[in-house]
Design a protein around this nucleic acid. Structure first.
Lengths: 198, 198
DNA sequence: ATAAGAATGGACTGACTGGTCTACTTTAAT
DNA sequence: ATTAAAGTAGACCAGTCAGTCCATTCTTAT
């Protein structure tokens, strides 16, 4: 297996179509037609649609994790400012895709968690990795005294991830990033606040 | 059109299957087989699968709204306590369905918002109605001085709805209500707090 | 009693699904 | 140059999809 160009093209196209339409609504033939690859090649690289879906998830998670590290572990920037940049990036993405795509992992989590344990496990791992990135960033913020120590960073990270995913979902049905802005505003004004008295 | 029993049975079964598997993954034949209704009857009551899906949404929204009113407009109970009961109910539901179903409207919002504007509009309306219920409850809490006045209840309601929906999504992939508990805890400890100094 | 329409029952259709199969071409090692 | 494997190509398969159609039965108003 040397030539990964075709495989990559399939995964990229798949990520795009699945992001837009969901997993079940995206047929293999549609992927094939979009990127001009014959079916024989598809089943040369992937043993099934599920296998393909898992590859799409893995690719997305890896590439996104790099972005996340670059943003959340940027020691030149204060931790809370890194979080703000993360949210800003998410808002930009949402506007770019005209509120249609949202978060691929969130979409698939919603669609496939009840359908296949294999998918659920894979998506859960991605979420957990993301949460861990948040935890590290929040610990730094606590160490600097930027936020209070009384809430464990693990709980905060869970809170942030779920709130953000929910805001993305709501932004899709509302066709507006307003819910994402509300979330960010309240999060920074009332949750991620300094322990010193106001 | 007198006999609504068959129609109701179709909608109930549809809500159940769509809740478990999603809209696209739920075939009409599966619904028919599950409740033992022939196809002729289906297309007697519904003009298409989309029409059916909208009916499922409407039915669910109506029935759920009644629950919501009973919970959130219960003047015998302090507003914040009503919210806590709402969250407790959601947690119960999640455990009942073994973390598989979650919130039908949230599921469909994720799956169909990018697929059909008709569905998106319908689901958006449901969300907005829910948010409005939260707004009323939060206004009462503000009037009683239970929470601060400085954040508009509309923004708070959006925050609560999105955070909760996100927690449900995360609970599904994690197969645990822990994210829901984290959300509730932080919400009540750091967001819905009295304006008086700590 | 009868006629009309509501509702049931299910065979059937064409399009499309994921997946298989085999013939062919290209690449790389010897 | 030969050979084996990697990769391309697309016809084809059984099954399923939403949706159509029509004969039949039930209900109700007259």
């Amino acid at each position: 297996m040397k030539n990964t160009a075709t495989r990559d093209k399939l995964i990229d196209t798949g990520a795009q179509l699945i992001g837009q339409q969901g997993y079940n609504a995206t047929g293999i033939n549609a992927v094939l037609k979009t990127c001009g690859v014959p079916k024989g090649s598809f089943y040369h690289y992937f043993s099934s649609k599920e296998d393909f879906g898992l590859a799409v998830i893995e690719r997305f998670a890896t590439s996104y994790d790099a972005t996340l590290v670059a943003l959340l572990e940027d020691s030149e920037t204060p931790p809370l400012e890194r979080l703000r940049r993360y949210f800003a990036l998410g808002r930009d993405h949402m506007l770019e895709c005209d509120h249609a795509t949202g978060c691929l992992i969130g979409n698939l989590g919603q669609e496939l968690s009840g359908q296949s344990d294999t998918f659920r496990d894979a998506l859960n791992l991605v979420f957990q990795r993301w949460e861990q990135r948040f935890v590290l960033c929040l610990r730094e913020a606590q160490a600097r005294g930027d936020i209070a120590m009384n809430t464990p960073p693990e709980a905060l990270a869970s809170f942030i991830l779920t709130g953000w995913e929910g805001a993305i979902l709501r932004a899709k049905t509302l066709k507006s990033v307003e819910p994402m802005e509300h979330f960010e505003k309240i999060l920074f004004e009332q949750v991620l606040i300094s322990p010193s008295p106001r």
